[in-house]
Protein backbone atom coordinates (compact mmCIF):
# COMPACT_ATOMS: atom_id res chain seq x y z
CA UNK A 1 0.00 0.00 0.00
CA UNK A 2 2.66 2.37 1.04
CA UNK A 3 4.78 1.31 -1.88
CA UNK A 4 1.98 2.05 -4.28
CA UNK A 5 1.53 5.49 -2.78
CA UNK A 6 5.20 6.20 -3.29
CA UNK A 7 4.95 5.06 -6.87
CA UNK A 8 2.08 7.40 -7.50
CA UNK A 9 4.06 10.29 -6.12
CA UNK A 10 7.03 9.35 -8.23
CA UNK A 11 4.93 9.15 -11.35
CA UNK A 12 3.33 12.49 -10.64
CA UNK A 13 6.65 14.16 -10.00
CA UNK A 14 8.21 12.68 -13.12
CA UNK A 15 5.32 13.65 -15.35
CA UNK A 16 5.18 17.20 -14.01
CA UNK A 17 8.89 17.51 -14.58
CA UNK A 18 8.48 16.33 -18.15
CA UNK A 19 5.63 18.80 -18.63
CA UNK A 20 7.82 21.63 -17.44
CA UNK A 21 10.71 20.51 -19.62
CA UNK A 22 8.68 19.98 -22.73
CA UNK A 23 6.51 23.05 -22.31
CA UNK A 24 9.17 25.04 -24.15
CA UNK A 25 8.39 22.98 -27.24
CA UNK A 26 4.64 23.35 -27.18
CA UNK A 27 4.08 26.77 -25.68
CA UNK A 28 2.77 29.28 -28.19
CA UNK A 29 3.61 29.35 -31.82
CA UNK A 30 7.33 29.88 -31.92
CA UNK A 31 7.97 31.39 -35.33
CA UNK A 32 10.91 30.14 -37.38
CA UNK A 33 13.98 32.36 -37.04
CA UNK A 34 14.85 34.22 -40.24
CA UNK A 35 18.44 34.74 -41.23
CA UNK A 36 19.85 37.68 -43.16
CA UNK A 37 23.05 38.60 -44.90
CA UNK A 38 24.58 41.77 -46.35
CA UNK A 39 25.13 41.63 -50.07
CA UNK A 40 27.88 43.08 -52.16
CA UNK A 41 27.06 45.62 -54.84
CA UNK A 42 25.69 44.60 -58.20
CA UNK A 43 28.26 44.19 -60.90
CA UNK A 44 29.07 47.68 -61.88
CA UNK A 45 31.59 49.54 -63.82
CA UNK A 46 34.83 50.22 -61.98
CA UNK A 47 34.89 53.50 -60.18
CA UNK A 48 37.47 55.19 -62.29
CA UNK A 49 40.12 54.51 -64.74
CA UNK A 50 42.99 53.60 -62.52
CA UNK A 51 46.44 53.60 -63.89
CA UNK A 52 47.44 50.23 -62.61
CA UNK A 53 50.93 50.52 -63.94
CA UNK A 54 51.12 47.01 -65.34
CA UNK A 55 49.91 45.26 -62.28
CA UNK A 56 46.66 45.30 -60.35
CA UNK A 57 46.48 46.90 -56.95
CA UNK A 58 46.83 44.81 -53.84
CA UNK A 59 44.69 45.80 -50.91
CA UNK A 60 44.47 44.45 -47.43
CA UNK A 61 41.68 45.07 -44.98
CA UNK A 62 43.74 44.80 -41.82
CA UNK A 63 40.82 44.90 -39.47
CA UNK A 64 37.26 45.97 -39.28
CA UNK A 65 36.12 46.31 -35.70
CA UNK A 66 32.50 46.31 -34.70
CA UNK A 67 31.04 47.91 -31.59
CA UNK A 68 30.21 45.38 -28.91
CA UNK A 69 26.47 45.78 -29.29
CA UNK A 70 26.63 44.68 -32.90
CA UNK A 71 28.65 41.57 -32.19
CA UNK A 72 25.63 39.31 -31.85
CA UNK A 73 23.50 37.21 -34.13
CA UNK A 74 20.33 39.20 -33.49
CA UNK A 75 19.78 42.16 -35.80
CA UNK A 76 20.04 45.30 -33.72
CA UNK A 77 17.76 48.26 -34.29
CA UNK A 78 17.19 51.39 -32.29
CA UNK A 79 13.73 51.76 -30.86
CA UNK A 80 14.55 55.04 -29.18
CA UNK A 81 17.39 57.48 -29.06
CA UNK A 82 19.32 55.34 -26.62
CA UNK A 83 17.33 52.15 -26.69
CA UNK A 84 18.27 49.07 -28.66
CA UNK A 85 16.10 46.22 -29.73
CA UNK A 86 17.33 42.73 -30.54
CA UNK A 87 15.34 40.73 -33.02
CA UNK A 88 15.28 37.20 -31.63
CA UNK A 89 13.68 35.78 -34.76
CA UNK A 90 15.62 37.85 -37.30
CA UNK A 91 19.28 37.13 -37.07
CA UNK A 92 22.44 37.53 -39.04
CA UNK A 93 23.47 34.38 -40.81
CA UNK A 94 26.87 33.89 -39.28
CA UNK A 95 29.22 36.53 -38.06
CA UNK A 96 28.29 40.08 -39.06
CA UNK A 97 31.89 41.25 -38.89
CA UNK A 98 33.09 38.54 -41.28
CA UNK A 99 30.14 39.16 -43.52
CA UNK A 100 31.08 42.83 -43.70
CA UNK A 101 34.72 41.95 -44.45
CA UNK A 102 33.62 39.76 -47.34
CA UNK A 103 31.25 42.33 -48.73
CA UNK A 104 33.78 45.15 -48.48
CA UNK A 105 36.47 43.10 -50.16
CA UNK A 106 34.16 42.19 -53.01
CA UNK A 107 32.99 45.78 -53.35
CA UNK A 108 36.53 47.10 -53.38
CA UNK A 109 37.74 44.56 -55.90
CA UNK A 110 34.76 45.47 -58.05
CA UNK A 111 35.36 49.18 -57.73
CA UNK A 112 39.14 49.11 -58.11
CA UNK A 113 39.21 46.31 -60.65
CA UNK A 114 41.53 44.08 -58.67
CA UNK A 115 41.17 40.59 -57.32
CA UNK A 116 43.83 41.09 -54.70
CA UNK A 117 41.82 42.24 -51.73
CA UNK A 118 42.65 40.19 -48.68
CA UNK A 119 40.74 40.07 -45.45
CA UNK A 120 41.70 38.74 -42.05
CA UNK A 121 42.83 36.34 -40.82
CA UNK A 122 46.21 36.57 -42.54
CA UNK A 123 48.50 33.63 -42.60
CA UNK A 124 51.43 35.39 -44.14
CA UNK A 125 52.89 38.81 -44.14
CA UNK A 126 52.61 39.70 -47.78
CA UNK A 127 53.09 43.33 -48.51
CA UNK A 128 50.26 45.24 -50.13
CA UNK A 129 49.91 48.55 -51.84
CA UNK A 130 47.17 49.69 -49.51
CA UNK A 131 46.17 48.67 -46.01
CA UNK A 132 42.82 49.65 -44.58
CA UNK A 133 41.93 49.76 -40.91
CA UNK A 134 38.26 50.29 -40.12
CA UNK A 135 36.49 50.98 -36.86
CA UNK A 136 32.74 50.74 -37.25
CA UNK A 137 31.02 53.17 -34.89
CA UNK A 138 27.41 52.48 -35.73
CA UNK A 139 25.51 50.49 -38.30
CA UNK A 140 21.82 50.01 -37.57
CA UNK A 141 18.36 51.27 -38.26
CA UNK A 142 17.45 54.18 -36.07
CA UNK A 143 14.08 55.11 -34.65
CA UNK A 144 13.68 57.56 -37.52
CA UNK A 145 13.54 54.55 -39.85
CA UNK A 146 16.80 55.50 -41.51
CA UNK A 147 19.84 53.30 -41.48
CA UNK A 148 22.81 55.12 -40.02
CA UNK A 149 26.40 54.18 -40.75
CA UNK A 150 29.45 55.66 -39.12
CA UNK A 151 33.06 54.49 -39.31
CA UNK A 152 36.49 55.77 -38.57
CA UNK A 153 39.06 54.45 -40.96
CA UNK A 154 42.68 54.82 -41.85
CA UNK A 155 44.53 54.12 -45.07
CA UNK A 156 48.16 53.05 -45.25
CA UNK A 157 50.28 52.93 -48.35
CA UNK A 158 53.21 50.63 -49.04
CA UNK A 159 53.37 49.39 -45.47
CA UNK A 160 54.31 52.74 -44.09
CA UNK A 161 53.66 53.36 -40.44
CA UNK A 162 51.96 56.65 -41.01
CA UNK A 163 48.48 56.59 -42.60
CA UNK A 164 48.00 58.51 -45.79
CA UNK A 165 44.38 59.13 -44.89
CA UNK A 166 42.35 59.06 -41.68
CA UNK A 167 38.69 59.88 -41.88
CA UNK A 168 35.31 59.44 -40.22
CA UNK A 169 32.58 58.58 -42.64
CA UNK A 170 28.96 59.19 -41.60
CA UNK A 171 26.25 57.93 -43.91
CA UNK A 172 22.47 57.91 -43.61
CA UNK A 173 20.12 56.05 -45.91
CA UNK A 174 18.41 58.42 -48.30
CA UNK A 175 14.84 57.27 -47.86
CA UNK A 176 13.09 55.97 -44.77
CA UNK A 177 12.38 52.28 -44.55
CA UNK A 178 8.76 51.46 -44.94
CA UNK A 179 7.23 48.62 -42.95
CA UNK A 180 8.51 46.35 -40.29
CA UNK A 181 10.11 43.91 -42.66
CA UNK A 182 13.78 43.29 -42.03
CA UNK A 183 14.29 42.61 -45.72
CA UNK A 184 14.07 46.29 -46.42
CA UNK A 185 16.32 47.22 -43.57
CA UNK A 186 19.00 44.79 -44.65
CA UNK A 187 18.95 45.84 -48.28
CA UNK A 188 19.20 49.49 -47.13
CA UNK A 189 22.15 48.54 -44.95
CA UNK A 190 23.81 46.79 -47.90
CA UNK A 191 23.42 49.91 -50.00
CA UNK A 192 24.83 52.13 -47.28
CA UNK A 193 27.80 49.82 -46.84
CA UNK A 194 28.36 49.90 -50.56
CA UNK A 195 28.53 53.68 -50.32
CA UNK A 196 31.19 53.36 -47.65
CA UNK A 197 33.14 51.08 -49.98
CA UNK A 198 32.97 53.74 -52.64
CA UNK A 199 34.34 56.32 -50.23
CA UNK A 200 37.37 54.16 -49.56
CA UNK A 201 37.83 53.19 -53.18
CA UNK A 202 37.78 56.86 -54.17
CA UNK A 203 40.41 57.65 -51.61
CA UNK A 204 42.60 54.79 -52.78
CA UNK A 205 42.24 55.72 -56.42
CA UNK A 206 43.18 59.29 -55.53
CA UNK A 207 46.38 58.07 -53.99
CA UNK A 208 47.12 55.67 -56.78
CA UNK A 209 46.78 58.43 -59.30
CA UNK A 210 49.04 60.72 -57.42
Amino acid sequence: MKLRYNKTIMFFAASSFLVVILSGCISGKAPATKFYILNPMDSDQPLAKISTKNKPLSIKIISQRLPQYLKRPQIVTRSGEHQLELAEYDQWAGNLGKNMNQVLSRNLSQLLATADVSIPPFYNQTQCDFDIEINILEFEKHADNHVHFSARWRLFKNNEKKPIAAEVTDLVSSKPIIGNRFDNTISEMSKLYEQFGRVIAREISNHVNK
Binding site: S23, G24, C25, A30, N180
Partner: peptide, 12 residues
Protein backbone atom coordinates in the same frame (compact mmCIF):
# COMPACT_ATOMS: atom_id res chain seq x y z
CA UNK B 1 13.80 30.70 -22.37
CA UNK B 2 15.41 27.33 -21.66
CA UNK B 3 12.02 26.00 -20.70
CA UNK B 4 9.54 28.28 -22.43
CA UNK B 5 11.50 29.11 -25.52
CA UNK B 6 12.27 32.52 -26.93
CA UNK B 7 9.96 35.40 -26.37
CA UNK B 8 7.93 36.14 -29.45
CA UNK B 9 8.42 39.68 -30.55
CA UNK B 10 7.41 39.57 -34.20
CA UNK B 11 8.63 41.80 -36.98
CA UNK B 12 8.83 45.44 -36.24
Amino acid sequence: SLIFGKKYSGDK
